[in-house]
Amino acid sequence: MSRNVMERVLWQLCVERAAKQRFREDAAGFVQRFALAPDEAQMILDFDVAGLQAAGVNPMLTMGFWQELSPQRSMRVYKQRLGCTDEQGAGFSAALKG
């Protein structure tokens, strides 16, 4: 696992406008530019935020990446993808239900 490279990819996708645009146009082509293992690239393409966090990626980056580029962008869905319990989901902020 290359946490450093995954964080670099996600950081660019969170803060660099040109990177976001390239990802939107051709996500697979974008991630191929980095030295990622196939499963690492797939986690990014799948917005597998739970897998990314399990690989050590900073949650601020997984959240930013999700909010910037995921098809759903809903923070409730984000928490569901992280495996939240019903209680955690029910208590989640109305401010972030997206």
């Binding site: 966090q53 900073n58 949650p59 601020m60 959240m63 928490k79 992280l82 495996g83 955690q88 902020s93």
Partner: peptide, 9 residues
């Protein structure tokens, strides 16, 4: 908690 499953606690 920022960006983790516990966010909101």
């Amino acid at each position: 908690w920022v960006g983790t499953v516990e966010m909101g606690q």
